[in-house]
Design a protein around this nucleic acid. Structure first.
Ligand SMILES: [Zn+2]
Ligand SMILES: [Zn+2]
Ligand SMILES: [Zn+2]
Ligand SMILES: [Zn+2]
Lengths: 139, 139
DNA sequence: GTAAACCCTGTAGTATACTTTAGGGTCAAG
DNA sequence: CTTGACCCTAAAGTATACTACAGGGTTTAC
């Protein structure tokens, strides 16, 4: 059995994060020792790594809670999980699209800026001031 | 002279947002009428659109405050503005990189999931459970 | 026997860009 | 002359995922 500090070290998170996850219902409430200390089974470390890996691919803690429910539900099907993953994939692609448009516009603008001379003649500020650049083509 | 509601409608923001921008120093403090109402010159609408366009390409309100300072500073040079734009461009590219990696991993996982059968055999959950996928190759 | 390192609870703070609420004046139309 | 639309301030709430703080008990090693 592990103390919270052991779990934190092995899981690569802080003890505060562990208490937070517990409070959010992402890890099961651990038993307590006579002194009130949380006592964890070693497998909780894997559980925390599940959460961290899910975060790494873009799932929020709320999403992860849903995934854990599915995982624990014998009636749930593979497609339920896949649907969450596909939904997240769409969200991510949407974000990439938005950012790519920003990148394109900013790239155009920075290319147009001579980098010399006063700000009063800066094409970047010009583009921001008037509706000239393609920045807001769709808004 | 315009009331705050007029400016809000013409600028495509809420009156609360206008008061917030004022409080944040992003738009100059307007004169007040005898009744205490804010009275705006029509050009403030353009000013708001500057802010919105800058947000559209990824600048935060803090960034925008900096840009406005540069714009107002006769001693500032074009390269100052360009530097901000290039910095933002890097930030955006970094975000795109992170998201692209998430997309690739999630894509691989969803392709591996047969979408039929119980969750206990879902390769997506498998990938999250164990250190198997390329999700955390660099962490 | 005491100091460091650890554990506990509960609450508040962080960042961003607003939105909402509470409580209350002002103005224009009918 | 009242109703609805509009304006005002100040403070608190929203979302996310923690982090920090205050105040205090426990364990371990010297
Ligand atoms: Zn320039
Ligand atoms: Zn599956
Ligand atoms: Zn009221
Ligand atoms: Zn203390």
């Amino acid at each position: 059995m592990l103390n919270i500090g052991d779990v934190a070290r092995q899981g690569g998170v802080s003890v505060e994060t562990l208490r937070y996850y517990e409070q959010q219902g992402l890890i099961e409430t651990p038993d307590r020792d006579a002194n009130g200390y949380r006592k964890y089974a070693p497998e909780v470390v894997r559980h925390i790594q599940f959460i961290k890996r899910a975060q790494d691919v873009g799932f929020t803690l709320r999403d992860i809670g849903d995934l854990l429910s599915l995982k624990a539900d014998p009636g749930a099907s593979c497609s339920d999980v896949r649907d969450r993953a596909l939904g997240k994939l769409s969200e991510i692609e949407e974000k990439i699209d938005v950012l790519s448009r920003m990148r394109d516009v900013l790239g155009t603008w920075t290319n147009a800026c001579p980098s010399t001379g006063p700000v009063s003649a800066c094409p970047i500020l010009d583009a921001l001031e008037a509706r000239k650049g393609p920045a807001n083509a769709d808004r």
